[in-house]
Design a protein around this nucleic acid. Structure first.
Lengths: 217, 217
DNA sequence: ATATTTTAGTGAACAGTGTTTACTTTTTGA
DNA sequence: TCAAAAAGTAAACACTGTTCACTAAAATAT
């Protein structure tokens, strides 16, 4: 009995799995879940449609893996910024902005990650799984930052970091979803709008954070 | 040539159209666009599937009408509150809260209204159509309230109402979408959470509005 | 090395979907 | 009353995700 954690067979299997996922990722990023059909995917990698089901129980399960990988990307980036030693004000701002930017960079991924609809795994629930999920970890980063803000006196002292984080997260999520669904957001010209998208993301981040700030008069 | 704007034939037609829409509404509210199949719908009203296409060009067009009607509902309610003479502080708060409450009351409607995906009509664009759409009108109510807040000195004087409205709307949208996609939001217990949903909606509304407030020290 | 068992892969089918076409029946307007 | 327009339909088309019975190949055990 060897100690190799992966037999040749297993390695080969994982390789093919990865090839399927990679092909799926390409299509999904461009056309979303609806554009990603098993038959098309099978054709792309020169397999029969039924072959996919030897590697994934269902299309949902396949897509779920794309979503999880995507949220890993968000978490990594947000974490990287959160661990920086830049001043709190811009660090928190950057976290919020980065979250929205990555989300809108892969709109189909982001929208799907929150559409429990097709997802088989409870996306985020009252269940213990949440704290371990990538989404849950991202949330912890956020509430951690808010705690820090309260501690250093930047935020009001009566703030409950967990509660506030839920509100802030919703606000970030909202802008991300707006941009995802309305590609021209925020520039639907009810009148001339000159602000660029990235500037608006920062504007929104400031707006959201300002709701937490303490005011030393 | 009579002046009757609707002939008997036309009235009959509209009646059947309404019956189709009504049946569609029932199914859609419970199961969303995916659960609403033309065949099922046809069976419900004792017609053949093809008959539906004498009244609607496509399923998308049918669903678009459900969405438009839904946003009429939101607009009516928000407008009703906005025209109240209650103090500005709670009036603005109520507007935000009502928007989110109605949205989450019909989650499939709200999510679909923003999912350009299946929608054929540009949902909200840089195009002139926006100002006339129900969504556009709801946006005008919001930016109008912000203007009022700036005028009476409740909000900071450097605020651009249009820009701020876009940010606030995103924040409202975010909470609505969170609740839509995560039915237990905000109570995914990373620790014990005792706040009810409606209370949290109000909490969020306060949080969002606070970002606009002037601080007279 | 041989026999056995597990895995990989396939073609065809099932049960759905939205939509179109050719056709029949009904209703309408003059 | 009669032609024209509209309402309604059955059947098919082109898709979808998924399953099943089956074969070919690779891994394992003897």
């Amino acid at each position: 009995m060897t100690v190799t954690v992966s037999s040749p067979a297993e390695r080969r299997r994982n390789k093919i799995r990865a090839r399927i996922l990679s092909a799926a990722e390409r299509v999904f990023a461009r056309e979303g879940a609806e554009g990603l059909s098993i038959r098309r995917l099978a054709e792309n990698i020169d397999y029969s449609p039924a072959a996919i089901y030897k590697y994934f129980k269902s299309k949902d399960e396949l897509v779920d893996e794309l979503k999880e990988t995507f949220f890993e990307l968000i978490l990594e980036n947000v974490n990287r910024i959160a661990d920086t030693s830049t001043p709190f004000a811009e660090r928190s701002r950057d976290c919020v902005a980065t979250y929205v930017q990555i989300a809108t960079d892969k709109p189909y991924h982001y929208a799907a990650a929150f559409a429990g609809e097709s997802g088989t795994q409870a996306p985020v629930d009252g269940e213990p799984g949440f704290a371990q999920s990538k989404k849950g970890q991202a949330f912890m980063v956020l509430s951690g930052m808010i705690s820090e803000g309260v501690e250093i006196g930047a935020f009001r002292s009566d703030i409950d970091p967990t509660l506030a984080a839920k509100s802030i997260w919703a606000s970030m999520h909202g802008l991300a979803m707006m941009i995802v669904h309305i590609p021209t957001y925020p520039a639907f010209k009810v009148e001339q709008a000159t602000m660029t998208r990235n500037d608006f993301i920062l504007y929104h981040a400031d707006q959201v954070i300002r709701g937490l700030e303490a005011h030393h008069g």
